[in-house]
């Protein structure tokens, strides 16, 4: 899944570019991302300076996005993955404990309101930072980075195979869905779960057999376990 054809079910988030952020070694980006997010998450809930800190974190992410020359809209548009979480955060003030207060004529919990604000800020910064990482790093670079970070070789290899074949398998699945729909099956309806499950069963068998063929092909080209890569 290189830069040019990573369209896993239309979910590829990579935005090709040659900026400094794109060219930075992937292992540094992973370490920076994790450290940054740990700092963000560790921001205390009671602190009065928290809003300033969140603004600073947000500015950091924005600065990296601009430096990477990834269109800000590209990132913003993909932030919809956060939506279910936003719904939850909005619910928190209504179910939280503590003294009540009035906002727009609704009675809500005051500490709940504060907590919801923190949740939203941290979650949003997290999604934006992760999207920045994803839009500037290809799958192959990420694999190399994780390998340099001493992730076990077997796990790196498994991840490599998964990334290489995920488009093939999801593509196969979406073709099966098209075939089901064209025969009048509605995969979302519980009435057709039987058909859906038989399709998934077939997909599993095809994936497993593809794995066996890949393994045989590797052996025939001199793949030696333990001395892999």
């Amino acid at each position: 899944m290189g830069a040019g054809h990573g369209h896993g079910a239309g979910r590829s988030l990579h935005h090709p570019g040659r900026s400094r952020v794109h060219r930075a070694p992937a292992h540094l980006k992973v370490v920076a991302l994790v450290t940054f997010m740990l700092v963000v998450v560790a921001t205390p809930r009671g602190a009065s300076w928290a809003p300033v800190a969140y603004a600073a974190y947000g500015a950091c992410v924005l600065a990296v996005v601009l430096a990477a020359r990834v269109p800000v809209l590209f990132v913003v548009r993909r932030m919809v993955v956060e939506l279910p979480f936003v719904v939850f955060a909005v619910l928190v003030p209504f179910v939280a404990t503590g003294p009540r207060t009035e906002v727009l004529g609704l009675t809500v919990s005051e500490p709940g309101l504060v907590a919801a604000g923190h949740l939203l800020a941290k979650g949003t910064i997290g999604v934006a930072a992760a999207l920045t990482m994803a839009s500037t790093t290809t799958a192959r670079e990420l694999l190399g980075g994780l390998e340099r970070l001493r992730m076990p070789a077997l796990l790196v290899e498994i991840m490599g195979f998964m990334l290489r074949y995920v488009d093939v398998v999801t593509g196969e699945w979406s073709r099966m869905l098209v075939a089901m729909r064209s025969r009048g099956c509605d995969p979302r309806s519980p009435r057709h779960w039987g058909t859906l499950a038989r399709g998934l069963g077939a997909l599993f068998i095809r994936s497993y057999e593809r794995g066996e063929r890949v393994h045989l092909a590797m052996l025939s080209r001199g793949y030696d376990v333990g001395r892999a890569r």
Partner: peptide
């Protein structure tokens, strides 16, 4: 066979997770 098999099954799990009910 661990690497190719688990990798392909992981791709299958990824595809299966796209099934919403």
């Amino acid at each position: 066979r661990a690497a190719p098999m688990v990798g392909l099954v992981a791709a299958f799990v990824f595809a299966a997770q796209m099934v919403n009910f």
